[in-house]
Simulated assay, not measured.
Amino acid sequence: MGRYLPIIIVALLTIYCVVEVAQASPYAVRRMPRWLWATVIICFPLIGSAFWLLLGRPNSASLSASARSSRPTAPDDDPDFLRGL
């Protein structure tokens, strides 16, 4: 069993990271697009997972920036709305 433990750990880490990439907001992911992160994690399981956890995973700054950019503005702040009046 001891021989297979590292393989099981890497497989579980890879699955965790792929699921996390799939659930992450597209605008909150850092450095690369989500599809490229998923490809890197699947092709290079240990290194890709480590890079995702360190470099690509959304952090509080990227989450607040994506929420701020996607938040609807007030109608009087929206130029398209004002043009339609």
Results as ranks from 00 to 15, higher is better:
37 W>S: 01
64 S>R: 15
55 L>I: 13
85 L>Q: 04
61 A>H: 15
12 L>P: 00
31 R>C: 14
57 R>N: 04
69 S>C: 08
78 D>S: 03
71 R>I: 01
48 G>E: 00
3 R>H: 12
31 R>E: 15
8 I>A: 09
32 M>K: 12
50 A>Y: 15
31 R>M: 13
55 L>C: 10
27 Y>V: 08
18 V>Q: 06
57 R>A: 01
36 L>A: 12
80 D>K: 07
18 V>T: 09
63 L>A: 03
75 P>S: 09
44 F>E: 04
33 P>V: 14
64 S>L: 10
61 A>Q: 13
55 L>V: 09
52 W>V: 01
10 V>L: 05
74 A>C: 06
58 P>M: 06
6 P>E: 03
79 P>Y: 07
7 I>F: 12
65 A>Q: 08
69 S>F: 11
60 S>T: 14
16 Y>N: 02
42 I>G: 00
42 I>Y: 04
39 T>E: 06
26 P>C: 09
52 W>M: 00
6 P>S: 06
31 R>W: 13
75 P>M: 07
40 V>S: 07
71 R>F: 04
46 L>D: 01
6 P>W: 04
48 G>T: 01
48 G>C: 03
35 W>C: 05
59 N>C: 05
71 R>W: 04
13 L>K: 07
71 R>N: 04
29 V>F: 02
40 V>E: 05
50 A>T: 12
28 A>K: 08
32 M>C: 05
82 L>V: 06
22 A>R: 15
82 L>T: 07
12 L>Q: 09
30 R>I: 06
42 I>R: 00
5 L>A: 02
42 I>A: 04
1 M>K: 11
82 L>D: 00
2 G>R: 13
12 L>Y: 10
23 Q>K: 15
19 V>F: 12
33 P>I: 14
7 I>S: 13
66 S>D: 10
33 P>S: 15
12 L>C: 05
33 P>Y: 13
16 Y>I: 03
32 M>N: 03
70 S>C: 10
77 D>N: 07
38 A>C: 04
42 I>T: 08
32 M>I: 10
44 F>M: 02
24 A>E: 01
3 R>Q: 12
35 W>S: 11
69 S>E: 13
83 R>H: 05
67 A>I: 09
23 Q>G: 15
84 G>F: 11
6 P>K: 06
37 W>F: 09
11 A>R: 04
71 R>T: 09
